[in-house]
Nucleic acid binder design. Sequence first.
DNA 1: GTAGGGTTAG
Length: 453
Amino acid sequence: MLSTLLLNTCIAAFCKCRRLAKAEAVIIDGIRLGVLPDVVTYNTLVDAYCRIVGLDEGYSILQRMREAGITPDVVTYNSLIASATRKRLSSRVLDFFDEMLQAGIPPDLWSYNTLMHCFFKIGKPDEANRIFRDIILSDFPPCPTTFNIMLNGLCKNGYINNAIMLFRNLEHHRFVPQLITYNILINGLCKARRLRAARKTLQKLGESGIEPNAITYTTVMKCCFRSKQYQKGLEIMSLMRSKGYTFDGFSYCTVIAALVKTGRVEEANSYMEKMTTNGIELDLVSYNTLLNWYCKEGDLESAFKLLDEIEKGGLECDQYTHTIIINGLCKAGNFESAQRHLETMNVMGFDSNLVALNCLIDGLGKSGQIDRAIRLFDSMEVRDSFTYTSLVYNLCKARRYKFASELLLSCVRDGMEIPKSAKRAVLNGLRGLGLIHEAKNLQSKIRMARILR
DNA sequence: GTAGGGTTAG
């Protein structure tokens, strides 16, 4: 006899492997046999539609639910809130929260955890912190996930010292860190270039008796590549392969991107082959990695062919995809197409693209169009250290050291770091022109700016 | 039903 429990198990299984039509068919079969869907059935569907199709489609299940005489519960809304959070749609998150309260459904700890995650994700750590304090002071005892979200949010928003403190406090509160907790902190420390602390945390993980997983290894491997320890990074990849941890595209993309970046395209190619022959389904990030590899090779024809393939396959290109293409066009000296592509991005509703503008600045400078690069620089509302570095280097190349020196100083005064090599290029240039006093002056001004900030 | 790793620029 088919029961609702069995029906729900069956539907959950189909949803998990993204077969929504099958899941719907099971519901219809169930109704025919007299087994009616319940709130769990619909909640499973809401979550699946949100993940696989989209937030609006997930929300439309709510209507179907009501028509079937079933009242949504806190789980229904939590799924919607989580989906809006994943998409960074903060106003939708707040709307769902309101709607839930209006419907008389009290939020639970999961709702607050997700809300906290949402605030971190949209770069509002103070708001997230407020929710965290509310949870601590409320009747809900926080759960490990609450701390994990907090720890991750602190790391991602640049509060690494607070994250370290929270981790220590966890131990004081006898909250045993989970593997996910270690992974969050190790990743945060690696990204903040606190390598010694990362190593210590990794050691602690080993002492705890928990086995590191694929995520731990990918994190550490990426950190090796970032700190130019390529051999060590590749050794970790071999280790991962022998342990069977290369079952998805994450490790491959990390390795391939690192090799492409350093110009080792042949080796990148061999990993690309390994990835495809191992039957790993390519997702957008893998395609982006592949696309970047074509661009680096200067094979724009294949890149555009791949772009077509991605879109025909039903994947939606993202900011990375377009930026990689723009960078490829710049490297090929086709600035008009690059600029057109950037404008198309704006029309498509993407936010202004600082990375792409930086690619344009650098490309223009390198191709000798320094004045055009300066005009673009002047027109930019937001600039970062890449913007300054590119222009400073290219001004040096054009022997305009005085201008380069002014830019270098305003970069440091704005609190941004610039590579030592860029600073050296300016100082050597000034000295080369016999402007010894100016060079000394620049050095002391940079020192002063660093002290004052 | 919430949390962790991969893709772009100097």
